[in-house]
């Protein structure tokens, strides 16, 4: 089985076909745009973070490949309802997994179903596709309006 056979699993194909939390959050208080200049992936992420510091609502829109779209869709379902600190920790874990620095089967993590993206580490040209939504989430939580994976070591 090759790396990408592992990658294009049904759960990813399903999120690509029917992205969850698609759209813009009304009354969002965080927003960021993410862009992969090399491949044209582009997403807009909106978030509503409540006074208790939890992600109450999250939505995304954009254009991208199946890896990027599924990663964004699954990210939104994963971080909804979580504290901002937990979401930030997941950003780091996901990036580490995608770049092969974290083994989701061995190292402690909260990635859950997001482990399906582990195989992307063997496809260096596609790592940025998977990471873009997480990069954008980090930017939104830190109020950077526009972000890009350019210059990211990933």
């Amino acid at each position: 089985m090759t790396a990408s056979n592992q990658l294009y699993q049904e759960v990813i194909l399903d999120h690509n076909r029917k992205p969850r939390n698609w759209g813009t959050v009304d009354g969002a208080n965080h927003r960021a745009e993410g862009h992969n200049p090399l491949c044209g992936d582009h997403i807009v992420l909106t978030l509503s973070v409540g006074s208790g510091g939890t992600v109450d609502a999250v939505g995304f829109e954009g254009d991208g490949c199946a890896i990027c779209k599924a990663s964004a869709s699954m990210m939104t379902t994963a971080v909804k309802g979580r504290a901002v600190g937990e979401a930030e920790a997941m950003v780091q874990q996901f990036r580490d997994m995608a770049t092969g620095k974290l083994d989701p089967e061995r190292d402690a993590n909260q990635l859950g179903r997001l482990k399906v993206f582990a195989g992307v580490k063997d496809l260096p040209s596609r790592v940025k596709c998977a990471i873009l939504p997480w990069h954008t989430l980090h930017a939104a939580l830190n109020n950077d309006a526009v972000t890009s994976t350019e210059g990211d070591g990933a």
Binding site: T2, N5, C65
Partner: peptide, 22 residues
Amino acid sequence: GIHPHDLGTLLNEDGVAIRTGH
């Protein structure tokens, strides 16, 4: 229904090298 980058990755599995992107 298939983004060019996904197509490129899937074709690569069959040993078919094409370029995807702009």
